[in-house]
Amino acid sequence: MAKNFVQEGRRLFLTAGSGVKSGDPVAVGQIAGVAVADVDSNNQTTVDTEGVYKLSVKGIDGSGNSAVAIGDAIYFVSGDTPKLSKKATGVLFGYSLGTVDSGATAIIPVKLK
Rank of each mutant, 00 (worst) to 15 (best):
I60V: 15
D72F: 09
G62A: 14
D48S: 12
Y53S: 04
S66C: 13
I31S: 01
D48F: 01
D101E: 09
G17E: 03
V28N: 02
Q30R: 13
I74Y: 11
T105Y: 08
N65C: 01
Y95V: 10
D38I: 06
D80E: 14
L92F: 13
P82H: 08
G103W: 11
V110I: 15
I108A: 06
V91A: 11
G98K: 11
V6N: 02
M1E: 07
T99S: 11
S78K: 13
T105P: 05
A35W: 13
A73H: 10
T45R: 01
S78E: 13
D38V: 04
V110C: 07
K58D: 00
G94E: 04
M1R: 07
K111W: 02
V77N: 10
L55H: 12
G19T: 10
G17D: 07
A106S: 15
S96V: 12
V36K: 14
A35I: 14
A35P: 13
D80T: 11
G64V: 05
A16N: 06
I60M: 07
D61P: 12
G33S: 07
Y75D: 01
I31A: 03
S66H: 10
F93G: 12
V20Q: 00
Y75F: 15
A67N: 10
K3Q: 10
D61C: 09
A67S: 15
V110W: 10
G62E: 08
I60D: 02
G64S: 07
I108Y: 08
Y95D: 08
K111E: 13
P82G: 09
V77A: 03
A106H: 11
V39E: 14
S66R: 11
V34W: 05
S102T: 12
G23F: 00
S63A: 10
S78L: 07
N4H: 06
P109R: 07
G9A: 09
D40K: 14
G90E: 05
N65D: 12
K113P: 11
T89F: 00
V52N: 04
V20G: 02
L84S: 10
D38Q: 07
K3I: 08
A73E: 15
G19A: 06
S102W: 10
G17A: 10
S85N: 15
L12E: 03
A73P: 11
Y53V: 00
V39C: 14
T49A: 00
Y75R: 13
V52E: 11
K87G: 01
G29V: 12
